[in-house]
Design a protein around this nucleic acid. Structure first.
Lengths: 184, 184
DNA sequence: GTGCAACGTTTCAAATCGAAACCAGTTGCT
DNA sequence: AGCAACTGGTTTCGATTTGAAACGTTGCAC
């Protein structure tokens, strides 16, 4: 029982809350997207996103504070400030694009998707953002397990790792549920 | 000028707002994660996430309403309700995992990452969630362009598509900024 | 029936959001 | 120099959202 409690406690202890601390706020992702689309100035974000002035100010400050945007005064016009993505900000692209693709796939209204995100090399649209195995295979949720840290890589002996025994040993945690849900 | 206005207007018109309508709410991603980790019941989410009772009730209802979770009474104990991920819900995994990996990469506190998400086949941890080109190459932000819908696939003549001319024609929108930012 | 567990809803205070007004530094114009 | 306009904020205040705690309802176990 203390065992279960402990495993549950660890559910919180992952990167997600860290990420959500910034990106969980309303508008953060929209600002990120606008930024990636080339918007740089306060008034641009303001008129484009339709966000309230004070909120935008607050969000930009928070994004800068977290190192996702950098804020630097404009050279030629010192009234203006440039907000630009940092490397850390660009690293949010997979999450943003994945979210966007999901919204596109299931959104009620047909969305025009313009401009389109394309591969620079051949200018063809990017494929769906994917989870990859260590050797590059594309994985969907039916090919995923959650295992305790110590058991990573174990049981490579070929036995299918989806038996009741696995659940009893606490080895696999969510697989059974994943399977059942997938069957519907 | 009307031209610019129009292109800006289109920035909103993508899947992102659709996705954020549900997943932009505070707690939504945490509930999704907990659900993927095997939690099914109201009280489980409640004690695990430390969320307020009324908010949890509200969020679960909203997630069900949007088809991300399905709510069905428990067979053996009809007081209990089971909240389980739908296919639509599982489709949010790439976004969730990408967010989590980002948080892990940049989070100040070292996170234990346990349980670990592994490939079912070899039980090795999954790689980073990635954007892929149509033919499977992994792309980072330096390999991405935004082009107008009509220009997708065009200019496959081999000329590097990163000239000032491209920007003037309005063909490429954010590339220049991407480049500059990447250089810092 | 009594007691308790599971899942909500209601209530009310605190925090957050949003529209509008206000403010300060900078620029452009005359 | 003087002044209007532009840019990026901050302040103010009403509306919405959140959160803690109490209360309700249904179903199980004895």
């Amino acid at each position: 029982m203390g065992e279960v409690r402990e495993s549950l406690r660890e559910l919180i202890d992952c990167g997600l809350p860290q990420a959500l601390e910034v990106m969980g706020e309303r508008w953060s992702f929209m600002i990120l997207r606008a930024s990636f689309n080339g918007l740089k100035h306060f008034e641009e974000f303001l008129t484009e996103l339709g966000i309230a002035r004070n909120i935008l100010s607050n969000r930009l400050a928070k994004l800068v504070e977290h190192g996702i945007l950098k804020r630097e005064p404009c050279e030629d016009d010192r009234r203006k400030i440039e907000y630009r993505l940092t490397e850390k900000g660009f690293d949010l692209l997979p999450a943003m694009v994945a979210l966007r693709q999901w919204g596109q796939k299931y959104g009620s209204e047909l969305v025009s998707e313009d401009p389109v995100l394309v591969d620079e090399r051949d200018r063809l649209p990017v494929g769906p953002v994917s989870m990859l195995s260590h050797d590059g295979r594309i994985l969907d949720h039916t090919g995923l397990n959650l295992v305790k840290r110590d058991d990573v890589g174990k049981r490579a002996d070929g036995t299918l790792a989806t038996t009741a025994r696995d659940l009893e040993t606490g080895d696999i945690i969510a697989l059974d549920d994943v399977r059942k849900a997938a069957a519907n």
